[in-house]
Simulated scan of single mutants.
Amino acid sequence: MESQNEFRAKVASLKDFDEAFVLVKNAVYAKFRMHRAGLSLILQVMPTNLGAYHVLGSNVIVMNSHVLATIRRLSGSEQEYNAYVFMVLAHEYLHSLGIVDENTVRQMTYDLCKTLLGEDHSSTRMAKEDPSTLFPQLRNMMQTQFSKEFQVVKNFDKAGQSYIQ
């Protein structure tokens, strides 16, 4: 596996959700020897206590666009925002692999981040506790509803797509 500094640099320089997801899939495979392809990402406003979820038995990960936008606004850098995206996608990807127990997935996400990025990295700190560890303002957000509107992220998990569209 790569050194923590190399992996930190990759997370810091992520450009989009697909690039983040490729890194997540490679990291999960390297650490746990688990893999699947063909996932879709949806962005939707949801209650602020939910960062994301995987629809059990589906190929869908849904991320909270309200929390995502707030973290983008609050983060001191693109690296912090990328750290959040990496951690959340890793967590939900593990769920998509059939691991339904939340505590198991939390521990696996923490182990993955700690191994690849180090104990002091933002991804690891958020995986160990939760994103409000770095962004305490999230605790004061009062979004309680799911929006009926959503956005399907285009060009997500491109490597897992067939050439026939």
Rank of each mutant, 00 (worst) to 15 (best):
N82A: 04
C113D: 14
A83S: 15
Q145W: 14
M141W: 06
S123N: 09
L94W: 06
S77I: 03
N140A: 04
E119D: 14
K114D: 11
Q107P: 09
M126H: 09
S122E: 14
D120G: 08
N82L: 11
A90N: 14
Y81S: 14
S132M: 01
R125E: 12
D111Q: 08
S122R: 13
T144S: 10
M87T: 06
H95E: 15
R125V: 13
N140Q: 05
Q107V: 00
E80A: 10
L112V: 05
Q107S: 07
M126C: 02
S122Y: 15
S96C: 01
E129Q: 07
N103L: 10
L94N: 02
E92W: 12
M87V: 06
R139T: 03
G118P: 11
E119T: 09
A90K: 10
D120H: 08
V105R: 01
V85I: 10
A83P: 14
Y84W: 07
V100S: 06
L94R: 08
R139W: 09
G118R: 03
E92N: 12
S123Y: 02
H121P: 15
N140Y: 02
Q79D: 14
Q79G: 03
L138Q: 13
E80R: 03
R139F: 06
I99F: 06
Y93P: 09
E102H: 12
K128P: 15
N103A: 05
K148M: 03
K114N: 12
C113K: 03
E102R: 06
D111C: 02
P131V: 00
L89H: 13
N103S: 05
E80K: 04
T104H: 09
M126W: 15
D130A: 01
P136R: 07
S147P: 12
E78F: 05
N140V: 02
N140P: 04
G118D: 07
F146G: 02
V100F: 01
H121I: 06
V100Q: 12
K128R: 08
F86A: 12
L134I: 06
L134V: 05
H91W: 07
G98E: 10
P131D: 01
Y81R: 15
A83Q: 11
G98F: 00
N82T: 10
N103P: 03
R125N: 05
M142P: 02
Y110A: 07
Y81N: 13
P131G: 00
T144R: 08
H121Y: 05
T104E: 14
E129P: 09
M87N: 12
E78H: 13
S147V: 07
G76R: 10
Q143Y: 02
M142A: 08
V85T: 11
S123M: 03
E78W: 11
N82G: 07
R106S: 11
N82E: 15
V100N: 09
A127Q: 08
S122M: 12
K114Q: 13
F146I: 01
L97A: 06
V88K: 12
L138W: 07
